[in-house]
Structure formats: C-alpha cells, structure tokens
Computed example of a mutant assay.
Amino acid sequence: MKASLSAIVTALAIAAPAWAQNGNPGGSINDNLGNPDYGVCRGVDAKCFHQWKREPTSKYRILLFTRTAGPRHAALGKALGSGLNPMLGPDNIIQREMQRIAADNGWAIDYTEDPAQMVNLSGYNAVVFVSTSRDALDDNGKTALRQYLRAGGGFVGIHNAFGTMYNWPWYEGLLGGTNFYDHGPFRKADVVMVDKNDASTRGLPARWEFGDEWYNLVPFPTKVRFLATVDEKSYGATLEQPRPPGGAFPLGFPPRLPSVVGRHPGHGSFHPVAWCQYYDGGKAWLTTLGHDARAYEADGGFMGAQQFQKLIAGGIASVMGAKPFCR
C-alpha cells in the first residue's frame, strides 16, 4: 500500500537534523528570500568542523580586519595606513576599543586594513571582521580565508561584515547563507535572547535595550543556531549619531536617487541579530549589531553597550575554542 503524502512529510520532518528549518521562523514574511546551496558542510552539527591535530595554544590571538572598499562607518574613523597595527587616530574608535576588549580577556590582537596582510592567517585563533564593506579582500585574501576556515579556523562577523563580498557565494554562506539588504533609521529597540545557553549569551538579560540600524537580510539565514533577535514591535525613537568622516560613500559613488521600487518589510515576529554555525571545516559566529562607536566603549554610557560587548567577547571566545561553541 502506498504511504499517504502527509505520512511521508511527517516522516521526513522527524528524520530531519535538529538544525533543519521547516519554512522560516516568523512565518511566511521570511519565505522566498533564497536558500542557496553553498556546496560545503554547514550547520550546527560538529561533523562540519575539521578537528585536525593542531599545535597547543599558549595565548589566544585574534586578527581584526576593518577595511572598507565602499561605505565606511563613522565608528571606524579614517582609513588606516598599511601593514599591521598602524598608528590610530582619535576617531578610530572600534580599533582602539577592540584592543581594550581583547586585553580585558587576556587575548593578543593585531589589526589591519591592508589586504596584503590577509594572506597569513594561520597564527590567529580568530579572524574578526567589523564593519568591513564591499570587496574588502583581493583574490589572495579570499583564498587564505577559505583555507583558514578549512583548517578549523574561527571567524566572527560584526555589523557591516554583512555588507561585504556580496558577489562571493562562499562568503555569503560563511555569514549563514545571508547578506545585508537594507535598514531603517538608527533607533532604539529590544534585543531578545532566544538561546541563553551559548557562551555568548549566557548571563545576559532575557531582553535588553540597544540602539542600532536593525539590518534586514536577504537571503534569510538558514542552518544556523539563532541566538538573539530584535523585537520589531519595540522599535522606538530615532537616535542621534555621529556622521561618517567625509560622508558615508567614498569618492566615485553617485548620489542616491529617490527609490521607486519596493522596500524590505522587515522580518516580522522573528528578526535575527546573532547566530552561529560550523562552516566548511571552521566555526563562524555572526551578529548584525554594532553600528555605533559608543556600543564598543567601556564608559560611553550607551544603552546596552555592556551587554553587546559581552555578547561579542563570548562569540570570539567560542570560535577560538576558549569556550564551548554553538551549543
């Protein structure tokens, strides 16, 4: 006797791995936003991690990459000079505060915006992209990042790491099968923990107020462990913010025209802002949060800054292996 269609669907759902998504969280508003196959092992099953023999770590070391080949966030300040660890100016707030966060956790840190430095990654326990943009890596850097992940490396993408390397499918997969599409005004809203057992979320309040641009995403993330969302119903007042040095767009970008096409509707009842996954042999921890410089400062008094810094420090620690990853 032939099995009924409903029985087959039920059996497939039971057999699906724990990370598998049936439809999209938040309902149909998130359907049809793409679900490409990136041709690698990815998800929350550790079988996708290459646990190869490696040298013991005496001190955790991270590499911070903040190069912009398109729009530049004010929190990054003026573009940095070449090489590793060039001199910082007073407006290079993210680079300076990430040094402090690393020191507070006992980590060594190098920082760069020089693509030539991105071909030697094997000495780092984590590579961290913060508000990079567009084609920030050349071909040699792309090759090095891929080989680094395949050797079991750790990647952390923060804020406009999602506005980077749009036309490189492997990188889109690294982000969780997603990319930045657009955002509304910079405004306050509530970040909601949906998984409080991760190293990055443990100890954080169930809900905390923060200010950000609240990125809308296309495609919608898949095969990831969602850690935090933004409650779109809590969207509040627009916040004042510093403007980027010399404007948001580099020379050669034409001014924007008034839009005559549709606008992204948001993600409704499930709008993710942080998640994790194993990817092509490595570990990836991602968050769309982190637009404003004050979110990184120890004493800036910005709403949710302490929680945000704990979130990203936990994510970095987890991809390095200093804390459990994605569970």
Rank of each mutant, 00 (worst) to 15 (best):
D195G: 11
L227Y: 02
W214Y: 08
G211I: 04
L217I: 13
R225H: 11
V194P: 05
F210T: 02
T201S: 14
N216R: 11
E213M: 12
V230Q: 01
V194E: 09
P219D: 08
W208S: 09
A199W: 02
P221W: 02
V230M: 06
S200M: 08
P221I: 11
G211F: 03
F220G: 04
Y235P: 00
G236P: 01
G203A: 10
W214I: 03
W214T: 01
T222Y: 09
K196S: 15
N197G: 13
R225C: 07
P219L: 12
A199G: 03
L217W: 04
E209V: 13
G203Y: 10
Y215F: 15
Y235T: 01
F220E: 03
D195P: 08
V224M: 11
D198G: 10
A199R: 05
V218Y: 13
Y235K: 07
S234Y: 06
N197P: 00
L217E: 04
D231E: 10
S200D: 03
T222A: 14
D212S: 07
S234E: 04
L204W: 06
N216A: 14
W214F: 10
P221L: 11
R225S: 11
S234K: 04
D212E: 06
A228Q: 02
D231H: 10
R225I: 04
P219W: 07
R202E: 09
T222P: 02
K233N: 14
G211L: 00
V224L: 11
Y235G: 02
D212Q: 03
G236F: 02
K223I: 05
N197R: 15
T222V: 15
N197E: 13
N216P: 01
R207E: 12
A206G: 15
E209D: 13
F220V: 09
V218N: 14
E209K: 12
E213D: 14
G211D: 04
W214K: 03
R207P: 08
D198L: 12
F210W: 03
N197S: 15
D198K: 07
V224N: 08
R225G: 08
V194N: 10
F220K: 02
T201L: 03
T201Q: 02
F220Y: 15
K233Y: 00
V191C: 08
F210I: 09
A206K: 13
L204N: 04
G203R: 09
V192L: 08
D198I: 04
Y215Q: 11
L204P: 01
F210N: 01
T229L: 07
A228T: 05
T229W: 05
P219Q: 10
L204A: 08
